[in-house]
Amino acid sequence: MSREVVSYDDDGHVYEFAPDMESVYTAADGESLTVETIDSLNKEIQTDDDLLSSIPEEVNAATGPIAVEGAAPGDILEVKIEDVRVNEDRGRVITAPGFGLLKDDEDIAHPATRITDVEDETIDFDGIDVTIDPVIGTIGVATAEETITTLTPHDHGGNLDTTDITGGTTAYFPVFQEGGMLAMGDSKAAMADGEMCGTGAEIGTDIDITVSVISDPEVGIDRPVVDTGDAVKSIASAETMEEAVALANQDVLSLLQADHGMSKTEAYLFSSLVGGLEISQVVDPLVTVRNAVPAEHLSLPF
């Protein structure tokens, strides 16, 4: 079955998520698409000698936005991520001044670059093979009120840098505006939880997705949720780790309450037995975490 291709070059891309986004393509409910993306640094870094003196104003280009027919505020947008394939022969890992977990460490060069050449199913980091395991770094929908750059994660999604947002998983986003307005990019050939230096191996990708609308759900969501098949994970971003983990825990409680008919207190107690806090990233303007509950203990109630 052929898929419509939505391309960074031919269709369009954004550097911010906003309430009044204009779609580059309108998908039918249940339609399958291929989304072509560019690396987060817009092909500016091609060799080890290419250095980033600062984080650009326009970074993390997100292909789209894609409107989905029938999506309305209060609905949930389901994005089945069927496959993520690298579409260029190299990635790039960088540091930049004032950016990254150890940005103030005087023994670490800021800026620095390592090109990671693609070799079959691996990338090469200074002679060490790292298995390619592509991740979609930035993915989200139109915001409820404020305009948020693609560098920043929030309730709409955005720069979540979450390793679970990859092929074989399903992501769910709250719909704040008509059509949802889905956009994505900033992929990595490989990235560790935390994204410590500020990047993964930044690379362009071709992403196969199927988009569907869950209308008038029994339980709504305020922030993204991902279903890996093995676990359901709430995803939350905030200024501090403490605030983010509290939000992620609150979101899990709502799902547990609906799935098991628990009171909020019962869900809170149960979450402390079966939930698991995980770090997505600690380097963007907000930190992002997730709370994972094994599938045996939580089925999505929508």
Results as ranks from 00 to 15, higher is better:
26 T>V: 11
170 T>R: 10
230 D>M: 07
218 E>S: 14
259 D>W: 05
187 S>I: 02
186 D>I: 00
8 Y>L: 03
190 A>Y: 14
108 I>H: 12
74 G>C: 02
258 A>F: 03
166 T>M: 07
70 G>C: 02
293 V>A: 03
244 A>T: 00
170 T>M: 05
44 E>Q: 15
4 E>I: 10
36 E>Q: 09
260 H>L: 02
170 T>N: 01
284 D>G: 14
224 P>Y: 04
241 M>D: 02
225 V>F: 07
14 V>E: 05
293 V>S: 08
117 D>L: 06
102 L>G: 01
239 E>F: 12
28 A>W: 00
235 I>Y: 14
58 E>A: 09
221 I>T: 10
147 T>D: 00
147 T>L: 01
160 L>C: 12
36 E>C: 03
187 S>W: 00
154 H>T: 00
173 F>C: 09
28 A>C: 02
226 V>G: 11
185 G>F: 07
80 K>P: 01
113 T>W: 00
123 I>C: 09
255 L>R: 03
245 V>Y: 11
6 V>A: 07
49 D>K: 10
280 S>C: 15
154 H>C: 00
115 I>K: 03
66 I>Q: 03
167 G>Q: 14
275 G>N: 11
173 F>V: 02
181 M>K: 14
206 D>P: 08
4 E>D: 05
47 T>C: 04
268 Y>S: 15
66 I>G: 10
299 S>Q: 13
126 D>A: 15
218 E>Y: 13
200 G>L: 02
19 P>S: 09
288 T>V: 08
59 V>N: 10
206 D>F: 05
88 E>M: 13
126 D>I: 05
132 I>Y: 08
83 D>W: 08
79 V>P: 09
21 M>E: 08
297 H>C: 01
101 L>G: 00
136 I>W: 02
190 A>K: 04
124 D>A: 06
168 G>W: 13
107 D>L: 10
112 A>M: 04
241 M>K: 10
199 T>Q: 04
88 E>S: 15
141 V>K: 07
262 M>E: 05
214 I>S: 11
80 K>W: 07
292 A>Y: 06
279 I>E: 07
253 L>S: 04
75 D>N: 14
286 L>Q: 12
66 I>N: 05
159 N>R: 13
188 K>L: 06
107 D>E: 15
284 D>M: 12
253 L>Q: 15
61 A>S: 09
35 V>I: 11
119 E>I: 07
121 E>L: 03
14 V>G: 02
166 T>G: 07
85 R>E: 12
176 F>G: 01
209 I>Y: 03
284 D>L: 10
101 L>F: 15
296 E>S: 09
85 R>D: 11
80 K>T: 13
37 T>G: 09
173 F>P: 05
161 D>E: 02
20 D>W: 08
172 Y>Q: 10
77 L>M: 12
11 D>V: 02
264 K>N: 10
7 S>H: 08
7 S>C: 06
87 N>E: 01
23 S>I: 00
